[in-house]
Design a protein around this nucleic acid. Structure first.
Lengths: 218, 218
DNA sequence: AGTCGACCTGGTCGGTTGTCCAAGTCAAGT
DNA sequence: ACTTGACTTGGACAACCGACCAGGTCGACT
């Protein structure tokens, strides 16, 4: 087998780990299986990574990064609110429905991270990335459709991630893509009701209750 | 150790498995750990269950059953729509936030089920139970508040389960109970906008667009 | 050409897992 | 009292895991 500097070998192993874990599940991503997938011998893994956990952390980091890069890559040019929201929802669902394995893997990683102390940072980093990506998508919508939101943008972002997670999970279980797509599109409709014209949004001090345009602060 | 008929011993082992898996994760629920938790010796497990998988399936079934029983146990007497929806959301979130371990376990079970053929039935049964429970809660709301829904009840039920899953997952990750509660309450608000007076709901043929109270059918 | 260090090999080790089994124990029925 | 069968015990086994290591290999620099 050809020789590689350790940095490149490391990336190759991360890709191999990603392939195995996406295909066969996180439990099947043993050091041996990853080495075999990469076509290297067993010892190489521990030559490039101190731990198996370090490899898994690197793999999770790679997923988060490329998720973030991908979700910001689809650029639905400037249009009105309906068009841009529908476009985002559509692109999003297409991206999900075409990658069942990685999608399932990300949930496996989340639960694993919440159980094993060595992976504690993985889940929070994963979700910080998703929330931040959702916020950036929202900013894009704000600019292209010239609107703001009736509730803080960060809360809208959390709602987006939550709804996507929920419908993705359901789709992974029952494989009913139409139900999932319909649900997400329904959420898109709801999103539009949260939009307010851009002019009267910047200086509004308190947003107390969620989803209640008629402020229930008092 | 005292002797038990196999049926009772089986239930005891299921409870022990539930305890171990909720506390330490599904991977920690080894045959030995379960036997130790139950205070029985190793061989008993395979005397009561043919497989470890059979035990896990039984455990998952127990979770589903008691989840269904619990979610229908909180009976928010007859009141107006606001009161009953807020009450349901509140009771729901209280139930979730008080059982972090089991909640996380249910997601571990879902992903495991989707990977291992021997557990294939677990996830779908889990979600069928949740969807059905959500539908029954919706029926309760319909009766107590004298309303119907702008979209088919089954789709509302799926939305409920999806939103709960999404916010629960986020809460498991970042431990921010207030954000989760706020998000669920916001969904409760949205739910109210889907309610229509009971009189004009039974004979409406087509429900085309989801989440659009201002009917976008035409 | 020769040396040095980065990179690779594959066997080995201790530990854990699910599964099995021969033997032991106890209550109930005769 | 004794037999029968349900229930229990704890050790044994093969398979697999992550980690480790002594030694081999090859490219690059002197």
């Amino acid at each position: 087998m050809n020789r590689l500097p350790v940095a490149e070998r490391r990336e190759q192993l991360i890709e191999a780990a990603l392939a195995v874990a996406s295909r066969d599940g996180i439990d099947a991503a043993t050091v041996r299986a990853i080495a075999a997938e990469a076509g290297v011998s067993l010892g190489v893994v521990h030559y490039c990574f101190q731990d198996k956990d370090e490899l898994l952390r690197a793999m999770a980091h790679a997923i988060t990064s490329q998720n973030l890069a991908r979700s910001l890559g689809d650029l639905p040019e400037h249009a009105d609110l309906d068009t841009v929201v529908d476009g985002v929802v559509d692109a999003l669902w297409t991206g999900i429905s075409e990658s069942r394995g990685p999608q399932l893997l990300s949930y496996e990683l989340t639960t694993s991270s919440l159980r094993h102390a060595e992976l504690n940072q993985v889940a929070i980093e994963q979700y910080r990335g998703q929330w931040s990506a959702a916020e950036q998508v929202l900013e894009l919508i704000e600019r292209t459709a010239q609107i703001g939101w009736a509730i803080p943008r960060s809360q809208v972002a959390r709602a987006i991630v939550a709804v996507i997670d929920g419908y993705s999970l359901a789709w992974l279980v029952d494989a009913d893509g139409e139900q999932a797509r319909a649900g997400l599109q329904g959420f898109g409709q709801f999103l539009k009701t949260l939009a307010v014209p851009a002019a009267l949004e910047p200086d509004e001090g308190d947003h107390a209750s969620v989803g209640a345009p008629d402020g229930a602060t008092a």
